[in-house]
């Protein structure tokens, strides 16, 4: 395991433990973050295991399975925190649509032995839009008293930056692979910055406040 992956796993564990900590029933968005961390842990662990010990040279099919699952979890996370009913419905409807699309792409366009960049780009575009919409909603509704103590703000900024980075990297990756493998590796490594930032922002979100303080009716 290289240093990038080691740091990745350390940060992933810290994030997971930060959200698992504490007692009592956790809010839905916390449960979604925990689910996402577990999914990422298993995806990365299985992908590394298959190459290292499984004797496989291509582990890309793992990502063909994890990408739709990742989208389901994140869309459920946003569906829960977004107030606008129309957008909630759109997010919910987008789930079966995205899953079906990713299956179609894996069967007909980018088979399971190739990088599923197209579907990752689509996923990233949707999630960037949803994150931006959520930030706009926070700004307009003015229901949060102290924004930097509101966990979903940090989680959303993390998702926004991670998927913006993903969009650029995945968009270039296939082209880079065709140009030079070394260049592609460098580009892929660059993606770790966004992963680390995502974890750091998620950790800030876990510790900024255990219970987000929303305006009471009286204060409104």
């Amino acid at each position: 395991m290289n240093i990038y992956n080691k740091v990745y796993f350390v940060l992933l564990f810290i994030t997971l433990i930060s959200y698992l900590g504490g007692f009592g029933k956790k809010p839905r968005y916390v449960r979604m973050v925990i689910l996402l961390m577990i999914l990422w842990f298993f995806t990365s662990a299985v992908a590394i295991y298959l190459v290292k010990y499984g004797g496989l040279t291509n582990n890309l099919f793992v990502f063909h399975i994890s990408t739709p699952l990742e989208y389901v979890i994140l869309s459920m996370l946003f569906r829960d925190v977004i107030v606008n009913k129309a957008i909630k419905r759109i997010i919910l409807l987008s789930v079966p649509f995205f899953v079906a699309l990713s299956v179609l792409f894996s069967v007909f366009i980018q088979p399971v032995d190739t990088n599923n960049s197209n579907i990752i780009i689509i996923e990233s575009v949707i999630l960037v839009f949803i994150s931006l919409f959520f930030l706009r909603e926070i700004l307009l509704l003015q229901q949060v008293t102290v924004l930097h103590r509101f966990p979903m703000f940090w989680i959303c900024v993390g998702i926004l930056f991670y998927y913006t980075g993903n969009l650029v990297i995945e968009g270039m990756l296939n082209y880079m692979i065709r140009q030079s493998m070394e260049l592609a590796r460098r580009t892929y490594r660059f993606g770790y910055i966004f992963k680390y930032l995502l974890f750091i922002l998620f950790i800030i979100g876990a510790f900024c406040s255990k219970s987000p303080r929303l305006l009471t009716k009286k204060e409104q």
């Binding site: 926070i138 700004l139 924004l147 930056f161």
Partner: peptide, 11 residues
Amino acid sequence: FFIVSFLFIYK
């Protein structure tokens, strides 16, 4: 820059 600007605009 993004975080600071957003917090500032929000305030």
